[in-house]
Design a protein around this nucleic acid. Structure first.
Lengths: 149, 149
DNA sequence: TTGGGTGCAAACTCTTTGCATGCCC
DNA sequence: GGGCATGCAAAGAGTTTGCACCCAA
């Protein structure tokens, strides 16, 4: 059985959940949600500001951070720490697409990957550990095909 | 058979390798190495600056960053990205103690853990992926015992 | 003696905060 | 109409750079 909400766009679903959580709509938020929904890979807050400045609707830097913060609280976006002292954000879409990232330390390319065995291993591990684990992040560093060639 | 170099302190070994790599000695470097060797858990660059300012020998901020950079290049320290927009550094001691971290999202506590199965899984995975993987980092987020209680 | 190490201060980058204005509800 | 959302500017926090001076080699 498929959850009906997966048929809606991420942006739509995010807007609903933000509303349900008591946040109000606004032009800045609409623009950020639309942009994030369009992106394939993870973006930094500044990337978002720049992209929107070039576009029709310009959005204040502070609003970008505030909106990302709201989205993160509701698990609608996921932070990716890819080194380089910058945090990237990516939309969390359906359920069955939890993934991690490969980071090319030469060109900075970010490539997602998923691995069931890895998830199982981390799941088991999480139960053995003296923490109540709620989340995890795996980053593989190295050189991408293009940079090795 | 035990590698003789493991009998030396980390600071001593680090100093040797830095020398072999062509870096020169200096008072700042000695102080940073000694401090790192004394620490149990990971520190930020600012933590190091503060700790050394309180102590006998004060070290310039720039030197701390430069020294950490040298140490990282030689894999003598390891970066830990524990969220909160700050990078932590910890000495890499012998061979058999590769580990990862649990981060308490409430109090910020950082706890190391090691798991062989996890390493094996990541090893296999690394060979399947279109990258030449050289390193990896796993961070489990959650609440530590103290914060749950 | 010489070139790299060091400290200071300033520049830079990314993020957060304060406040006046505007718009959703 | 009230109060949160927004934009701007300025403040913070962390990191990097420029440069004069010092010291290890």
């Amino acid at each position: 059985v498929r959850d009906a909400r997966e048929d809606l766009s991420w942006a739509h679903r995010a807007a609903e959940q933000l509303g349900a959580a008591g946040y109000r709509r606004g032009a800045a938020r609409d623009a950020v949600l639309a942009l994030l929904d369009r992106q394939q890979c993870a973006l930094s807050a500044l990337d978002i500001e720049d992209a929107l400045r070039s576009g029709a609707r310009s959005v204040g830097r502070a609003s970008v951070y505030r909106i990302l913060d709201q989205l993160e609280r509701l698990d609608l976006v996921q932070k990716v720490e890819a080194g380089k002292n910058t945090v990237l954000y990516e939309p969390v879409r359906g359920g069955h697409e939890h993934h991690h990232h490969l980071v090319c330390d030469r060109c900075g390319r970010l490539v997602p990957f998923a691995d069931e065995e890895l998830e199982r291993t981390i799941g088991k591990l999480s139960r053995r550990v003296p923490f109540q684990v709620s989340d995890h992040e795996v980053v593989l560093h190295g050189a991408c095909d293009d940079c090795v060639r």
